[in-house]
């Protein structure tokens, strides 16, 4: 059994070792080691195309994560308050948003927006001299759509496990509705919202296919990586990949520590 586990980790990490190894390799050939070098890191971070793509991706991912955690939380709280057809309708929308493949989301967003632009652009150009076109904002819109559904599902699962008597106690003690929300409901839902935020950020930062369709002239990091792999990859890309990996592992550890602290605080409060 141990052997199987070890083999699985080797299987998972062999390609990553190749990426990280390539970033420190003095030569350009991926499978031939020619000595240690940090050259590619310097080149990557002085390449304006790479830093710009990295900036665009960070901006899109942060905006997506922030907007979808707020709207997803609101939707989950709203859904708690409704029954009947409206609830069924929203549930159906959430499942459709999750089930429709990313590539179809990309295509449908592209052709719907382009059709709308064709209708309104002549008038807009004539009166205000502006033209609407695809770009980062369209990527954010399409990512938010999917991630609202994810956050809403996570928050709802947490709401179902929540102790209702806490809310009632707070109300009995004459807390204002907003006070109850801020002091009782929000802290209880925080882990689900944080998990949703991180998932949305990761999804958005990593997404290639939706952005490929709707980013227009803007270049995200995955789009840059895709085109440089097509042209023949340079180890600069490996350097960026390594930095992203190390950063996200660090963030993961920090998030884990925050969650653990939260749990300990709660255990202390309960005891």
């Amino acid at each position: 059994m141990r052997v199987y586990l070890v083999l699985v980790y080797v299987f998972l990490y062999a390609p990553i070792a190749l990426i990280v190894g390539g970033s420190f390799n003095a030569g350009k050939q991926a499978m031939i080691w020619q000595g240690f070098s940090l050259e590619w890191y310097g080149k990557a971070f002085s390449n304006p195309l790479i830093t710009e793509a990295l900036g665009t991706s960070l901006y899109i991912a942060l905006a997506t994560a922030a907007i979808s955690s707020v709207l997803g939380l609101m939707a989950a709280l709203g859904l708690e308050r409704v029954k009947g057809w409206l609830r069924t309708f929203f549930d159906a929308l959430i499942y459709i948003a999750i089930m429709v493949p990313g590539i179809v989301i990309g295509i449908s967003t592209l052709i719907a927006f382009v059709s709308i632009f064709e209708l309104v652009n002549p008038a807009l150009t004539a009166t205000f001299n502006i033209r609407l076109q695809m770009g980062s904002w369209a990527v954010i819109a399409a990512h938010v759509l999917f991630n609202i559904a994810v956050v809403a599902l996570l928050v709802r699962a947490r709401l179902q496990g929540m102790d209702r008597s806490l809310v009632e106690a707070s109300e009995d003690l004459y807390a204002t509705p907003f006070g109850t929300f801020r002091q009782i409901v929000l802290p209880l839902l925080a882990p689900a919202v944080l998990a949703g935020f991180l998932l949305a950020f990761t999804f958005s930062f990593e997404d290639f296919i939706i952005a490929y369709f709707v980013a227009g002239p803007d270049v995200t990091l995955p789009i840059y990586v895709f085109s440089s792999i097509r042209r023949g990859v340079t180890p600069e890309i490996n350097a960026v990949g390594t930095v992203v990996l190390v950063t996200s592992l660090l963030l993961l550890v920090i998030a884990q520590l925050i969650l653990q602290r939260g749990n300990q605080a709660r255990v202390r409060a309960d005891g």
């Binding site: 609101m74 709203g78 449908s108 967003t109 052709i111 719907a112 927006f113």
Partner: peptide
């Protein structure tokens, strides 16, 4: 309504409408 509206707008204009266009 205020809680559900923003998500509703996203779902209708970025999911249902585009799928109908497709």
């Amino acid at each position: 309504a205020a809680l559900l509206a923003p998500a509703g707008v996203f779902f209708v204009f970025l999911l249902i409408l585009p799928l109908v266009v497709v």
